[in-house]
Design a protein around this nucleic acid. Structure first.
Lengths: 253, 253
DNA sequence: TGCAAAATCGAACAATTGTTTGAATCGGTC
DNA sequence: GACCGATTCAAACAATTGTTCGATTTTGCA
């Protein structure tokens, strides 16, 4: 306990030290930079988030970022992998468990979709920060256009992604490889850019609010997500009546 | 005719003037800036495309952009609306025609999807530049994260977008408004980010290559796109067997 | 208390951004 | 050929970026 800290007890509510107490204060700068980086990354993405904006938000000196993290890229790499490593680890853990147990024979696709998205929903609640923020972060990360973020995610999680692609391929044997690839592309791009957009995320939390327990929340969200994603993946190509309907549109143009 | 120009005739093939001949040259600067802007916007987006990169690519002076277009934003607004105005005009024209004629009673959703995407496919072929570039441009435009581009598109094409939302709502009366909104969000976000990605676009052009005429190309692409997008929009929520499958995944976590 | 390492600070660095300026050049007309 | 408006040019502007430097302060341990 320092004298300075004792002195603040005279105005406990008003005069709070701008720096944390010493024991916490040791790591406080790094922690606050990480928190500020997350917050601003969610709002503006990698390119549009400057180190000055971060250090101002965190209330630390500009040079602190380079001192503690080396560079802007190293800082963001740490922020990204902190969140996404645990997410992807949990995803493959669930996939392993389900493959060991054996999938539902008729609703395999729904189970795979649930496996992909359940870890995000659960982390969104268990994380120390507001759950909505976790989904926002996820959306930003996978929708960020900077080459740095894209390369980082592609390299680091290539193996985990391949696991899911193979699992979907096995569950949808009748679907041509290029059709499956296109549809999965669509699905993942849609998820990420949707998570990054404000109003679509509100819809999902609205669905969750209608139910009781935490498990029910997840079930409610997945109950709305999985059917229509599965419907997208399972749809048959070249139905003749559909082809006729499409051709009637082409006739107008 | 300047002396300089006459002197170049000694090396007709080698020493070509960097500036166009006079009559074309009058507007050549503006045209080349517009072309370079499109090209670089497709690759890097709004924020990451600098005026110096544009003017270097176009082979003109840096100050030419501000002289001819006023500002970077005015330049990009022109490039964007040049492409997208005609696209959205064609979209609502098709929608008007189909509403006047009356939709197919069973495959209305497929027809609406075809109505949304056919103009893009046709413009991709009819445009003076390579068709692939048009789809790239479209994807970049709707996936660009800059507030400038997002605001421009949202304001300018709000009315046209609302037309399609209402048409889909009428075609899917059994679907709750919030579910429809979420699914359309997914669909449009997926389209735009997919068009911006290289490999997914290759898949689509691969589909188109398998067929003969231009109309067949469009039919082939839409034949693969429409069914699975329609399957996504039409999927029913809360199927009990699906719910059971999902809950069995939740039990693992 | 004193000392060495760690951490913070203000200031400046070089590079890049969009924009502006004033002189030089071009193009068509009298 | 001389003029004038339109265009192009090199150069500089102020603002912003990530990074580095040296001095100062703080911290933990003797």
């Amino acid at each position: 306990m320092s004298f300075e800290m004792l002195s603040t007890t005279h105005f406990p509510a008003l005069k709070i030290r701008e720096r944390e107490p010493r024991n916490e204060g040791r790591a406080a700068t790094k922690t606050r930079i990480l928190a500020a980086t997350e917050k601003l990354f969610i709002i503006h993405g990698f390119d549009a988030t400057s180190l000055r904006a971060i250090t101002t938000e965190a209330g630390v000196n500009l040079a602190a970022v380079n001192y503690h993290f080396g560079s802007k890229e190293e800082l963001f790499a740490l922020v990204l992998t902190n969140r996404l490593d645990t997410l992807n680890l949990e995803r493959v853990r669930l996939l392993d468990a389900l493959e060991a147990k054996g999938f539902d024979t008729v609703n395999t696709v729904e189970q795979l979709i649930a496996t992909m998205f359940l870890p995000a929903l659960r982390l969104a609640r268990s994380a120390e920060r507001g759950g909505d923020d976790f989904l926002k972060f996820l959306g930003r990360a996978y929708a960020d256009p900077s080459v740095f973020v894209r390369d980082l995610l592609a390299e680091r999680y290539a193996a985990q992604n391949a696991r899911f692609v193979h699992a979907f391929a096995k569950a949808l044997p009748e679907l041509a490889a290029q059709d499956l690839s296109m549809r999965l592309h669509f699905m993942l791009d849609a998820i990420s850019s949707t998570l990054a957009s404000e109003d679509a995320r509100k819809l999902m939390s609205g669905l969750a609010a209608t139910s009781g327990s935490a498990v029910d929340e997840d079930a409610a969200v997945l109950g709305h997500l999985a059917p229509f994603l599965a419907g997208s993946l399972r749809a048959k190509v070249n139905q003749s009546s559909q082809q006729d309907a499409i051709r009637s549109v082409l006739a107008f143009a």
